[in-house]
């Protein structure tokens, strides 16, 4: 466990400090916010994929549930932002509980079923029949609670909590048990690991993290449509960043987000006419030549990556 603390101090603290200070020197604060959001999502995805091997293709479902949990609390309960953030977490957790049976599926079946579930939630929320509750396809406006600086700070806190969680997962008994499940569930069960309970907890934690990310996203951008909160690219980006960096490590997803999302924005701003093409080529090359992520470059040589 001491190693967990050390890893948090060496990896997470400098990152958090840099992100906290960055708005002072760089004024596109929304870009920084998006970095934080993808860092949270990538680590949340890491908690389920990295440690149990389940790839939630519909991860955005929890994100969207969180965003709408936040929005509904503000619109209908006149909640202030912090209680509304709690509602965001609860909404995603509730969805996580409902979707727990999906864990019985494996591989691509799980990924696709999870995608279908995210689509189903989107289709319910954006349905005009629920206009009185969710505003249906007409989108929500939360200008009454709009507070970019405060929500930036809250996002940082969520990121910090997520990083602590991942550092704990990597070093505590529970995390090791999870990784044992990923490698071989049958042997793990025989060795006395509570397989079902372990992965359910990882699943719910992962859902909670995405929900909180969704809540703070809703708070930060304040005007959005269901298409925005359930945009499939949130899932895909989080997956790509995590895998590129190296799942099941703390540093991997961080590097994945900083490098790939950074590159994404550099391409988008400098050569917008070939944005999509260059990014596509880049991803293909990365998967072909670095299939196990950046972290594998180091672990291959026998070093441990924090």
């Amino acid at each position: 466990m001491r190693r967990g603390v050390r890893e948090f101090v060496t990896v997470a603290l400098p990152l958090l400090a840099a992100l906290a200070l960055a708005p002072l020197v760089y004024s596109n604060e929304l870009l920084l916010f998006n970095f934080i959001m993808f860092l949270i999502l990538a680590q949340g995805l890491n908690a389920i994929y990295g440690f149990t091997g389940y790839l939630p293709f519909g991860y955005v479902g929890f994100f969207g549930a969180g965003a709408y949990g936040f929005a509904l609390a503000v619109m209908h309960l006149d909640a202030t932002p912090l209680p509304a953030m709690a509602c965001a977490g609860v909404a995603a957790l509730a969805l996580g509980v409902v979707l727990t049976p999906l864990l019985r599926l494996s591989g691509a079946y799980f990924a696709i079923a999870n995608l279908a579930a995210a689509q189903a939630v989107y289709q319910v929320i954006s349905n005009p029949a629920l206009q009185d509750i969710t505003k249906g396809p007409y989108g929500v406006t939360l200008s009454s609670v709009f507070a970019p600086a405060l929500s930036y700070g809250v996002a940082l806190i969520i990121l910090a909590a997520t990083l602590i969680l991942v550092a704990w997962l990597r070093n505590a008994r529970f995390g090791l048990a999870l990784q044992a499940i990923r490698e071989d569930p049958v042997s793990a069960a025989m060795a006395g690991v509570a397989v079902v309970r372990g992965r359910t907890i990882a699943w719910l934690l992962s859902a909670l993290i995405a929900g909180l990310a969704g809540g703070v996203f809703a708070w930060h951008i304040s005007v959005f449509y269901p298409e925005t909160a359930f945009d499939l690219s949130f899932s895909i980006f989080a997956i790509v960043f995590t895998l590129f960096g190296g799942a099941a490590t703390q540093l991997g997803p961080i590097l994945g987000v900083l490098l790939l999302y950074g590159l994404y924005n550099v391409i988008g701003i400098t050569v917008p006419q070939y944005f999509q093409l260059i990014y596509g080529v880049l991803i293909v090359l990365l998967v072909l030549f670095l299939p196990d992520g950046l972290a594998s470059l180091v672990t291959r040589r026998g070093f441990r990556v924090p």
Partner: peptide, 28 residues
């Protein structure tokens, strides 16, 4: 792409990302 891809540790999941990239290229 495929032989290289299949040599990877978790090719089933990696394929989703690889072909996401291919999709971006085709659409662009």
């Amino acid at each position: 792409v495929v032989p290289r891809l299949l040599a990877a540790r978790d090719s089933e999941m990696l394929s989703i990302i690889l072909f996401f990239g291919v999709q971006q290229i085709i659409e662009a």
